[in-house]
Amino acid sequence: MPINKHQIIRYQALDKCFRNNGKRYFIEDLIGACNDAIYNFSGNSDGVQKRQIYDDIAFMLSEDGYAAPIEKNKVGRKVYYFYTDINFTINNQPLTESEALELKETLVTLNRFKGLPQFEWIESMTTRLEASFQFGIDANQIIEFDQNEFLKGKEHIKDLYHSITNKTPLTISYKSFSANTEVEIELHPYYLKQYNNRWFVFGKNPKYDNITNLALDRISKIELLEANFINTDIDFQEYFEDIIGVTFSNEFQSEAIIVRVDIGLWPYIETKPLHGSQKVVNKTDEFVDIKLELIPNYEFESLILQYGEKIVVLEPKHLKEKIQDRIKQLIKKYNCAD
């Protein structure tokens, strides 16, 4: 069974008590020490039970735990606990089997980042840990992530990451899909985001009031710029709350959008909501109407269209008409292709 944070905190607290040969620790003292340690870590404690401490001691004594040299002496009707070897500590012991299992599972997940700049250390660490603990991990045999290993632009992640953390302005050579020539852009980078298997960097270009968004696969060169960094107070977790994807405009406000979903598609939309604001407003045997609160953008339109006839926008009128127009253009092109 995986070890949780409170268990680890209790083991550390008990280890400290057992190593202290200047005080006798009875069961009540051990409970108090564990409660104090948990409180200092999390700011609250539900109260450690006596049975938990007995179980913790049993685990620490076991070969599956730390094989700790814990002894107990009786004073009257009470018992205190201590290490027979005061130089012993669980922090100097090799990983237990349960800890090794957790580490192995973590390494399997970390393997998803192999090949990405800024995460080169993972491959080296994984190899060393596999050799040290004889793990023999082959993550691709049991789990796979949706990641394009040949994605253009990912080589810039490391430089951009460092520039963000070190607050370093940059000069970026950039060519958008719609431009014929490359331009140089001054950017004070704030945030990296991946969407639809593409990476984007968000920052401040002094020429514009709004945040600038650049796709990494359109960047050809990044150079450090000698200038004072322009800070921001934007919380980018909140910044993206009202949109799907990465296209954001201050010209538009979040609005209520009503979408009708075919009943056959509903289980998929229910378990994987279109947006965090999704709420059911009407449900029949044939369809489910849901309400979304967001700023409609190109990514949202594309998301709706990918479901074809299974999803229809009902409100607002301007968005419904825009989707209808895109469908008409699509039909027109299909007709021309005959």
Rank of each mutant, 00 (worst) to 15 (best):
M1Q: 01
I3Q: 04
H6L: 04
Q7F: 02
Y11W: 11
A13P: 05
D15S: 11
R24Q: 05
Y25H: 04
I27Q: 02
I27T: 09
E28M: 13
D29L: 11
A37I: 02
F41Y: 14
N44F: 15
N44P: 15
D46Q: 10
D46G: 12
D46E: 11
Q49H: 06
K50D: 07
I53C: 10
Y54W: 11
D56F: 00
D56T: 08
A58E: 09
F59L: 13
S62H: 14
D64Y: 03
G65F: 03
Y66P: 00
A67W: 01
A67E: 02
E71M: 11
E71I: 13
E71R: 14
N73T: 01
K74D: 08
G76H: 08
K78D: 03
Y83N: 13
D85Y: 14
I86T: 03
S98T: 05
L101V: 04
L101D: 04
L101N: 00
T106D: 12
T106N: 14
L107G: 00
V108E: 05
T109L: 13
N111E: 06
R112K: 10
F113T: 04
K114F: 07
P117D: 04
F119D: 10
W121K: 09
S124A: 11
S124R: 12
M125C: 15
M125Y: 15
T126D: 05
R128C: 12
S132M: 13
S132Y: 07
F133L: 09
F135V: 03
I137F: 10
D138Q: 14
A139D: 07
N140E: 13
I143F: 14
I143M: 14
E144G: 12
Q147H: 12
Q147S: 06
L151G: 07
K154T: 04
I157Y: 08
D159C: 11
Y161W: 12
S163K: 05
T165M: 07
P169T: 04
P169V: 02
P169Q: 06
L170S: 06
Y174Q: 04
F177I: 05
P189I: 08
Y190C: 02
L192Q: 02
Q194F: 11
N196C: 12
R198M: 10
V201W: 00
P206G: 10
L214E: 01
A215R: 06
D217P: 08
K221Y: 12
A227K: 08
I234W: 11
I234Q: 03
D235E: 10
Q237M: 04
E238L: 13
E238N: 15
F240M: 07
I243K: 03
G245I: 01
S249F: 01
N250H: 05
E251M: 15
S254Q: 11
A256S: 12
A256L: 10
V259E: 07
V259M: 08
R260Q: 05
D262H: 14
I263A: 08
W266C: 02
W266E: 00
P267N: 10
I269A: 03
T271Q: 15
H275C: 09
H275V: 05
V280A: 10
E286H: 09
I290A: 00
K291T: 07
L292D: 00
L294P: 00
E299T: 05
S302T: 08
S302R: 14
I304W: 02
I304S: 09
G308R: 02
E309Q: 14
K310G: 06
I311V: 15
E315S: 12
K317V: 09
K320I: 04
R326N: 01
K328T: 06
K328A: 07
K328E: 04
I331N: 12
K332T: 11
